[in-house]
Nucleic acid binder design. Structure first.
Lengths: 135, 135
DNA sequence: CATTAAAAGACTGAAAAGGTCTTGTTTATA
DNA sequence: TATAAACAAGACCTTTTCAGTCTTTTAATG
């Protein structure tokens, strides 16, 4: 219900791999897959999402691969989590109305939960993958 | 991955039902089930968990039912969420070691996530069922 | 002793998560 | 220009979790 999904974890480990390289270069997923013990085909799927999100750029063809689309200082954990699993805000919408349709506004239960999720978002937004990689 | 489960939502609505009564009394789950449009047998299961957690007390037999075990001011959202779905801390343990077993300590990714979850916990702990019911 | 309600836990169906497979397309280079 | 390495896209499959049901048992009360 609240755990970091495998997809997100793999995405982060994949991105950290770029940061931890001595120099910037195009890296094929086969390399990351082997080094990080992440199933190749799953990693491919994840990076295709990161590509659409503008977090990485792809280079096709022989000697192709991926490269970070922006500075690792500007890639934060929230970007990655929401990129892979969708917006956190999707998780405090209320089911109650399916039964009682009086009001459309968010119910007090989910409102309190929203407050917590917002705090969580703040924390995640304030950690870049560069910072994580350094730690 | 991050949403409030049905079980938790039903638990909260069930508990709020007690708070919103004019006077304190033993309430059978059949009444809450009907009033709140919650499947009876599911609600039963949820209240058995709340019972074990010391949040409600049960009264068996004819005219039996449940009653809050403590003041609604002292029942917070975190109690309920963790009571039903298990401790939030379970959601930042790392899978990485299944591949690389060098270290046992929490990895930087999950460490950052833990910081966020701790903030979320704080917020949830600071909202009581009584407060939610009043809102 | 019939009725009503909780207690306990096995069981089931549906949905989501995690992962694989297949069939392309692109492109450097031998 | 054929080939091999790599991304692109999406169908497909398997496992786990979630949500909910069913059955049997225990207990209280009129």
């Amino acid at each position: 219900m609240l755990r970091l999904s495998r997809g997100v974890e793999y995405a982060m480990r994949g991105l950290i791999y770029f940061v931890s390289q001595p120099e910037e270069r195009v890296i094929p997923l086969s390399e990351i897959s082997e080094s990080e013990c992440i199933p190749k085909s799953f990693l491919v799927k994840i990076f295709q999402v990161l590509l659409k999100r503008g977090i990485v750029k792809s280079v096709r063809g022989l000697d192709g691969g991926f490269i970070l689309a922006k500075s690792p200082r500007n890639i934060n954990l929230l970007d990655i989590i929401e990129g892979i699993d969708g917006p956190l805000s999707a998780f405090y919408d209320c089911h109650r109305d399916s039964c009682k349709k009086e009001d459309n506004e968010i119910c007090p239960i989910h409102n309190a939960y929203k407050e917590g999720i917002d705090k969580l978002s703040d924390v995640l937004r304030n950690h870049s993958i560069e910072e994580i990689a350094r730690t």
